[in-house]
Amino acid sequence: MSVSRIRYDWDSSEIGAIYNTPLLELIYQAASVHRQYHDSTKIQVCKLISIKTGACPEDCSYCAQSSRYKTAVKPEALLEKETVLNIAQKAKESGISRVCMGAAWREVRDNSQFDQVLEMVKEVTALGLEVCCTLGMLTESQAKRLEDAGLYAYNHNLDTSAEYYNTIITTRTYGDRLHTIDNVRSTNVTVCSGGILGLGETVGDRVSMLHTLATLQPHPESVPINILSQVPGTPLENQPDVPIWDVVRAIATARILMPASDVRLSAGRARLSQVEQALCFMAGANSIFSSDDGHMLTVTTPCPGYNADQEMLNLLGLEMRPPKTRDKLAPQAVIN
């Protein structure tokens, strides 16, 4: 089989045709591409730490941390550095190779709190872990400061299509999100950007979002596929569950479009059975988020625990992938 080349010139109609391929054939095609670029026996297991929780001024309709909605989340101050380091060390001992630190901010500000986050990045990186941050919008100079601190990746999800975006969020634009990604790309920090399934979007919206991601050059090194966790008190609390087949289709399509990227089965995984997760891995997902407290980010976002995930990986014959470093990251060469 010839190696599937990396493309950045995808047409929306091509992506729609891939997404709508008969399911078993789609899984087979995605699994074949996956094996050309990745070790199919390895899964990266990640830990997400909420370093600053709640009181976010944004109006993201799905989010428990928005100050505009009455949810079970109680605002908390920025965690102490030692607390974060202890969580990261415990995660490393459980086989975690990537720690993502999330703060419920609209944007990064040049203040003492950002200075504290930079220190966290330095010291968690020194533990030998990949460090990702998701802190909201940031400028090019702030991205450079994160790079200098040793940051491996910056997460800034598109969430959905440009066309549907204003239905879900009004306090920032789609262009704002793409601009932040551009600012990260001005550094050697890798990009983590994906979306959420189950916001009420159409298949066309999913195709449009994947088109935006797949025509970025280079592709995001990390593409999280999130499943909506319906949070009481948010506008989307009564959304129906996303069928597993839709999740598998999105993962498989992302894998074919962005073959060298890590495709992460992220939020919402807690409601999937081991068999359903195995289908996602077959379709090209090669990363999950795991937890020691049953929550991914806040008490409203459940996440499988370390022991349950280790049991599942053992059952499926999968191993935890070690961390990478920025200097050893292979560029996305176009393969003809």
Results as ranks from 00 to 15, higher is better:
residue 184 V to D: 09
residue 146 L to E: 02
residue 176 D to H: 12
residue 171 T to N: 04
residue 171 T to Y: 03
residue 149 A to G: 03
residue 168 I to K: 00
residue 180 T to D: 14
residue 186 S to P: 05
residue 173 T to Y: 01
residue 180 T to W: 13
residue 154 Y to T: 09
residue 147 E to T: 03
residue 174 Y to T: 02
residue 174 Y to R: 01
residue 190 T to D: 09
residue 146 L to W: 03
residue 186 S to G: 08
residue 172 R to T: 00
residue 180 T to F: 12
residue 161 S to D: 08
residue 188 N to M: 14
residue 154 Y to R: 07
residue 145 R to I: 03
residue 190 T to F: 10
residue 162 A to K: 13
residue 159 D to W: 04
residue 150 G to Y: 01
residue 144 K to G: 07
residue 174 Y to A: 01
residue 157 N to W: 06
residue 184 V to H: 12
residue 170 T to H: 01
residue 172 R to H: 14
residue 146 L to G: 01
residue 185 R to W: 07
residue 183 N to G: 10
residue 181 I to W: 11
residue 183 N to M: 14
residue 145 R to H: 10
residue 176 D to C: 07
residue 174 Y to Q: 02
residue 157 N to Y: 11
residue 162 A to Q: 13
residue 153 A to S: 15
residue 188 N to L: 10
residue 175 G to C: 01
residue 147 E to S: 05
residue 156 H to Y: 07
residue 179 H to D: 12
residue 162 A to W: 05
residue 190 T to H: 07
residue 146 L to C: 04
residue 157 N to P: 10
residue 144 K to S: 06
residue 184 V to Y: 11
residue 148 D to T: 04
residue 177 R to W: 03
residue 152 Y to G: 02
residue 182 D to T: 13
residue 179 H to F: 06
residue 171 T to S: 09
residue 153 A to E: 09
residue 156 H to P: 06
residue 175 G to L: 03
residue 163 E to G: 06
residue 169 I to V: 07
residue 145 R to W: 03
residue 183 N to S: 12
residue 181 I to T: 14
residue 153 A to Y: 09
residue 187 T to Y: 11
residue 144 K to I: 11
residue 153 A to T: 12
residue 181 I to D: 12
residue 179 H to N: 13
residue 166 N to L: 01
residue 160 T to S: 14
residue 189 V to Q: 12
residue 145 R to Q: 14
residue 189 V to E: 09
residue 158 L to G: 01
residue 167 T to W: 01
residue 180 T to N: 13
residue 184 V to I: 15
residue 181 I to A: 13
residue 185 R to M: 13
residue 159 D to F: 09
residue 165 Y to D: 01
residue 190 T to P: 03
residue 181 I to Q: 14
residue 171 T to A: 01
residue 182 D to Y: 13
residue 154 Y to D: 11
residue 166 N to Q: 12
residue 161 S to I: 04
residue 184 V to A: 12
residue 182 D to S: 13
residue 182 D to N: 14
residue 184 V to T: 14
residue 183 N to R: 12
residue 177 R to N: 08
residue 182 D to I: 05
residue 153 A to F: 10
residue 163 E to W: 05
residue 166 N to R: 01
residue 184 V to F: 13
residue 173 T to M: 01
residue 155 N to P: 08
residue 187 T to P: 10
residue 186 S to H: 15
residue 171 T to E: 06
residue 168 I to N: 00
residue 158 L to Q: 10
residue 144 K to N: 06
residue 167 T to H: 05
residue 161 S to R: 07
residue 182 D to L: 11
residue 180 T to G: 14
residue 185 R to Q: 12
residue 160 T to R: 09
residue 163 E to F: 08
residue 147 E to R: 05
residue 150 G to P: 07
residue 169 I to F: 00
residue 148 D to R: 10
residue 186 S to F: 09
residue 170 T to Y: 00
residue 190 T to L: 15
residue 165 Y to A: 01
